[in-house]
Amino acid sequence: METALADYLDDFTRRDWQTLDPDAVTDPVRIAVVGLGWFAREWALPGIARSAYTEATVVTDVDADAVEAVAADHDVTGVTPEELRSGAVADEYDAVYVATPNATHLEYVTAAAEQGKAVLCEKPLESTFDRAERLVAACEDAGVPLMVGYRMQTDPAVRRLKDLIEAGVVGDVVHVHATMSQTMLGELSTDTDQWRLDPELSGGNALMDIGIYPLNTTRFVLAAEPEQVYGTTRTEHEAFAGVDEHASYRLTFPGGVEAMCSVSQNAQHASRLDVTGTEGRVILDPAFYEREDRGFAVVRGGTRVDVEFEQVHQVEEEFAYFGHHLLADEPFYPDGEHALGDMRALDAIYESADTGLPVDLT
Rank of each mutant, 00 (worst) to 15 (best):
R14N: 05
M260I: 10
A103Y: 02
N216E: 11
A167T: 07
L361I: 11
Q311M: 10
R134K: 12
A224P: 06
D285A: 08
Y230W: 12
R160D: 03
A56W: 00
R219I: 09
T13V: 15
S271T: 12
G356Q: 03
A328L: 05
S262C: 04
R159G: 11
D209M: 15
R250L: 08
A99E: 10
T60L: 06
G277F: 03
E225T: 15
M208A: 13
T100H: 05
Q265W: 03
M147Q: 15
Y321L: 11
Y213V: 09
T13Q: 13
L20T: 12
P286M: 08
E83S: 11
L284P: 05
E337G: 11
F240L: 01
E225A: 11
G242N: 07
S189I: 06
Q182P: 00
R30P: 01
L361P: 07
D155P: 02
E42R: 12
K123A: 07
G336F: 01
V170M: 07
F288R: 11
R294D: 01
G204K: 12
D244L: 10
Q268L: 13
C261P: 07
T80L: 03
V257G: 11
G255I: 07
R151E: 07
E227Y: 03
V305W: 15
D65F: 05
L185S: 08
L161P: 06
E317K: 15
P156Y: 11
A32T: 09
D141V: 03
H177Y: 07
T217L: 05
E133K: 14
A178M: 02
Q182G: 08
E200L: 10
F322P: 02
R159W: 12
E107K: 13
G87D: 02
V359T: 09
A99Q: 12
A95N: 09
T57P: 07
R250G: 00
D354R: 14
A247W: 00
A297K: 15
F39C: 00
L340D: 02
V34E: 11
Q115R: 09
L188D: 05
G204C: 08
P124C: 01
I165F: 06
Q228P: 00
A223T: 12
G168I: 10
D244A: 07
R300K: 14
V59R: 09
L201K: 12
E2F: 14
L197Y: 11
T278P: 06
V70T: 10
G295E: 06
E2A: 13
F12K: 04
V70H: 00
F332L: 04
T104I: 09
V34S: 00
V359R: 12
V25K: 06
R234N: 10
L135E: 05
E133T: 12
L20A: 14
T54W: 05
A345D: 08
R250P: 00
D193W: 11
V58A: 04
D7I: 12
V109M: 06
T179P: 01
L188W: 14
A118P: 01
H246Q: 09
A4G: 10
R219K: 14
M152N: 14
V263I: 06
T154V: 14
W38N: 13
A270W: 08
D65A: 15
S352W: 04
R30C: 00
E258F: 04
Q311W: 09
V109G: 04
E68N: 05
E107C: 03
R281T: 14
